[in-house]
Write a protein that binds this DNA or RNA. Structure first.
Lengths: 144, 144
DNA sequence: CTACACCTTCCAGTAGCTCGAAGTTCAAGC
DNA sequence: GCTTGAACTTCGAGCTACTGGAAGGTGTAG
C-alpha cells in the first residue's frame, strides 16, 4: 500500500501521515524500489487509532507515549492505557456540553439585544458597549 | 489605567493586549511620562467586545474590520454588523452540540469495549485495533 | 514512448498567542 | 534620598498541528 491509498483508507492526508512519521508517531515504513513508502495493514490500524485519539484532543506528545513503536503493539496493554484517556475525555465532554448550553443561552439574549437596539439611537458617549450586562457576564468574562 | 489593570479587569492577558495592539485590533493608547500605556474606559469596552467575539470564533482579520479604529465607534452601526456574526455562530453552535452528542455516545461505547477487553487475551496478530467496528465508524472516520 | 498521476524532500507559512531576555519605571517603606 | 520589588518596556523566538509550494523522481496505462 502506498501513502495515497493509506491516506484514502484512513481519511488522514498524505502530508499529515508524513508529518506524523517525522513527529515519531508512525515508524518509518519499508520502501519500494523507487524509494516510495510501502505500508501494511497494521499501519492502517495504528493510524486509525491515532486519528481517534486526536479527535479526543490527545496531543502528539502524549500520543507518542500511547502508540509506542517497538513494544506494546498488542491491544491488551494498550487498552489499560486508553481507558483513563477515554474516561477523562468523557468528563471533559460533559463540561463542554454544559458550557455550550450556557453560551447558547447567552447568544440568544445577545441576539435579541442587538435586534432591539438596531433602530434605537445610542446614549451619547456609549462606545463598544453593544451588550447588556447579563449577557456580558457570560460572554465577556472568564468565569467559563 | 495601566496595562495590568486593564488585563485584570478584562480577563485578557497583558501580553495578549499588546499583541492585539500590534495586530491592529486596539489603537495605540496614550503613554505615561515613563512610556507606559495608559488606557481609558472605552478601551476596556472595546477589549471586552473583542473578547466576546473571539469566544465566538471570530478571527483577528474579521475582527479588525468589525472593531475599526476611527469610524464606527458608536454602537448603532456596529450592531448591524454584529447581528449576522451572532446568528451564524448560533447555527454553528447547534451543529457543534449535535456532534458532541454523537461523540459522547461513541465514547461510551468505546469505554465499554475497552473495559470488556481488559482481561481478555488478544486475537493473535491483532494490532492497534482496540475498537469495535461500530465505534470506529464514528470515532475513526471523517464523516463527522 | 509518452502522458500523467502519484510520489519524494525540504523549506516556509498559518493562527493566536506565549515565553524569555534585558532593561526601565512606579509605588511603598525606611 | 535610597532601596526593593512588582509592573512595565521592546524584541525576537517558539509553540501546536498542520498546510502549501517548489523542484524533481516514480509507476502505470495506452
Amino acid at each position: 500500500m502506498r501513502i495515497g491509498e493509506l491516506a484514502a483508507r484512513s481519511g488522514v492526508a498524505a502530508t499529515t501521515i508524513r508529518y506524523y512519521e517525522a513527529a515519531g508517531l508512525l515508524p518509518a515504513p519499508a520502501r519500494s524500489g523507487g524509494n516510495q513508502r510501502a505500508y501494511a495493514e497494521a499501519d492502517l490500524n495504528r493510524l486509525l487509532l491515532i486519528k481517534r485519539l486526536r479527535l479526543l484532543g490527545v496531543g502528539l506528545p502524549e500520543l507518542r507515549g500511547l502508540v509506542a513503536f517497538a513494544a506494546g503493539e498488542r491491544c491488551g496493554p494498550l487498552r489499560g492505557q486508553l481507558l483513563p484517556v477515554v474516561e477523562r475525555r468523557l468528563v471533559d465532554l460533559d463540561r463542554q456540553v454544559a458550557d455550550l448550553a450556557l453560551l447558547h443561552a447567552a447568544l440568544l439574549r445577545y441576539r435579541d439585544t442587538l435586534r432591539l437596539g438596531l433602530g434605537a439611537p445610542d446614549a451619547p458617549g456609549a462606545r463598544f458597549a453593544c451588550c447588556d450586562p447579563a449577557t456580558c457576564a457570560c460572554l465577556g468574562r472568564d468565569d467559563a
